[in-house]
């Protein structure tokens, strides 16, 4: 369980995290989504007691992070896969993690197996690792303590689609055991695949939050037709609101049956008809990305 309450971080006049309140619950994978520089990493560092908040508070398992007796045993963190001593081997980094959390050394090999790093790769220095390998090592490091709570900053960064699928299965399994998983991402499709609940942040503020189903549920349908202009006209005549025409696709605020009847009455061919999946969230995300990019400030 992680709770952020009115969490705010200011750097001089710049507000990196602005009055953020949400909860990552046990049994659920919570996705923290936002464009680069939206304040995700700053918020996650505040969760782990590394960045002091300007105001507000965070609790992990009901306590401030620094009041956890052995945080390394209860909270698995991956805050930056690049933040490793380049001269250490992957195996050594996991061995240090095992010592820190008071876990047996056998966990090191278990974790290497789990993330798919070979024995040979584990003896190489991290300097020679690819981004994807570093990411896998970081995930292994976070999971090694068998923690109740996972805090992962951009864990899917650098993973191929197969790797992202693997991570989804892994994190869903961990959440199903009653663990709390909070991860961040700047890619909508990535977090869509992995998370159950979403918190969308832009320029430090939360702009949307809820279950993935609720946020991605489309209102309306998208119909594909060889004659989009005529279909749009027919739909408007039937009193429906046409949101837009994109090539041969017509977006409309109505369910599929209604659209099909209008098309049938107008004797128009429809080649594809489906609910408008996630259109709203995607739109929101694109707007955020656009405006955040213009005022991008490195956090």
């Amino acid at each position: 369980m992680i709770r952020l309450e009115n969490l705010t971080k200011r750097y001089g006049g710049f507000t990196a995290v602005d009055d953020v309140t949400f909860e990552a619950r046990p049994g659920v994978v919570t996705g923290f989504l936002g464009p680069n520089g939206a304040g995700k990493s700053t918020a996650l560092r505040m969760v782990c007691g590394l960045t002091p908040p300007t105001s507000g508070r965070v609790t992990v398992l009901g306590r401030a992070y620094r009041d956890l007796p052995t945080p390394a045993a209860h909270v698995g963190t991956l805050l930056d896969a690049a933040a490793q001593h380049a001269g250490r081997t992957g195996r050594e980094i996991l061995t240090l993690a095992a010592i820190a959390a008071g876990r047996p050394r056998t966990r090191v090999d278990e974790m290497l197996d789990l993330v798919g790093l070979t024995a040979d790769e584990s003896r190489r220095r991290v300097r020679h690792y690819s981004l994807g390998m570093r990411q896998r090592l970081g995930i292994a490091q976070a999971l090694l303590p068998d923690p109740q709570v996972l805090v992962l900053d951009e864990p899917a960064n650098g993973l191929d689609p197969q790797g992202i699928h693997w991570m989804r299965t892994l994190l869903a399994g961990l959440a199903a055991q009653g663990r709390t998983v909070l991860l961040s991402s700047h890619l909508l499709h990535e977090v869509e695949l992995v998370a159950d609940e979403l918190v969308l942040i832009g320029r430090g503020r939360i702009v949307a939050q809820g279950t993935k189903t609720a946020l991605l549920a489309g209102t309306g349908s998208v119909a594909t037709t060889p004659e989009p202009a005529r279909l749009a006209e027919a739909l408007t005549r039937a009193g429906l609101v046409v949101r837009g025409v994109d090539g041969d696709a017509v977006s409309v605020d109505a369910d599929g049956e209604r659209v099909a009847r209008v098309a049938l009455d107008a004797a128009l061919l429809v080649t594809d008809l489906r609910p408008a999946q996630g259109a709203r969230l995607e739109q929101l995300f694109l707007e955020l990305t656009g405006s955040a990019d213009r005022s991008a400030v490195a956090a």
């Binding site: 007691g49 590394l50 956890l68 930056d80 933040a83 380049a86 993690a97 820190a100």
Partner: peptide
């Protein structure tokens, strides 16, 4: 080497 992110998360 930026290992502080891990070190001070282990012992705040």
């Amino acid at each position: 080497q930026r290992t502080a992110l891990v070190t001070y998360a282990v012992e705040p």
